[in-house]
């Protein structure tokens, strides 16, 4: 499962960033595929990107004059969220892949969460409301509204957009200043933190994860937990990179559907399914059942 997921992540990242000419010339793809968005966080200013970034697109619609409901992006989020939920984060997001790979580096003792996780996990909702929402509606740079999340926070834009473009385009390199340094600093902190903590950006800051997380409770792709067969051994929670208990896995907004719980369960009572899991308010028996 682990290898399959990594392979899918790599193939999807190459597939959605396959415009090799852009990397060579320091330019971006300008074809019709950019009418559509890719599901994960993938900067459309990446020289290889063949689709649009869903958060960039949402902000572009919010940046229009006055306030108009961004129907196209609401539709996109409902469409992909209802089908996949945060499966997209776990399997199809290029920046998630980068963090996953960094977390495999055996440099320090690994942590699943940061201290004060129970508070910090709401950071992604704050970013969604303040930067993507209010920021894009009310923050002006000159006379034009600015995509505040892209401008001040997005590490994907710095990694996949800025660095390759600045490396191959001298005119852009000359213009890089304080803002670029700020964004580069954020990227470096997040990348270093990823070596120790599992996906810090996804867990605490990603507004796309906040959106898809809401769909986890009813999305088509579910991790189904068979409570009756569970022997409460805790193997799934130990394997879970975001430390979720089996009763939380199905509907939690934090579950990225990585499938590690399913692979770790000795009884096979966790598996990908279309069927939703049991109500998260029902707790399993703490005592393990006697096995004959």
């Amino acid at each position: 499962m682990k290898r399959i997921r990594t392979a899918v992540q790599i193939i999807f990242t190459i597939f959605t960033n396959g415009y090799a000419y852009g990397f060579l010339r320091g330019k971006i793809y300008q074809g019709n595929l950019k009418y559509a968005c890719v599901p994960g966080l993938n900067c459309y200013s990446c020289p290889g990107a063949v689709g649009s970034c869903p958060l960039g697109a949402l902000q572009a619609l919010l940046n229009r004059r006055g306030f108009q409901v961004p129907f196209a992006m609401l539709g996109f989020f409902f469409l992909f969220g209802s089908l996949f939920g945060r499966f997209i984060c776990g399997w199809l997001c290029p920046f998630g892949l980068v963090q996953d790979l960094l977390h495999k580096i055996p440099l320090s003792r690994k942590r699943k969460r940061l201290p004060f996780h129970h508070i910090l996990k709401y950071g992604k909702y704050v970013v969604l409301i303040c930067l993507v929402g209010a920021g894009s509606l009310f923050l002006f740079g000159g006379f034009a509204k600015v995509p505040a999340f892209c401008k001040y926070l997005c590490p994907s834009g710095t990694l996949f957009g800025a660095l390759p473009l600045l490396a191959s385009n001298e005119a852009l390199r000359d213009q890089a200043g304080g803002l670029f340094s700020w964004k580069l600093g954020i990227l470096i902190v997040l990348l270093i933190l990823s070596v120790k903590v599992y996906r810090p950006f996804c867990q605490y800051l990603c507004p796309l994860g906040a959106i898809y997380g809401w769909f986890n409770r009813f999305s088509l792709v579910q991790v189904h937990w068979e409570k009756e067969r569970c022997i409460s051994c805790g193997a799934c929670q130990r394997a879970c990179p975001v430390d979720l208990a089996p009763e939380e896995i199905s509907r939690s907004a934090e579950c990225i559907r990585c499938g590690k719980c399913a692979a770790a369960c000795p009884e096979g009572c966790l598996h990908f399914s279309k069927k939703p899991g049991p109500n998260p308010d029902t707790k399993p028996d703490l005592k393990p059942e006697k096995r004959t």
Binding site: I28, Y44, S45, V146, T158
Partner: peptide
Amino acid sequence: KAVMICMECIGIG
């Protein structure tokens, strides 16, 4: 928006 280099995204704009 997507076919122009987004200056904000790359930390220049």
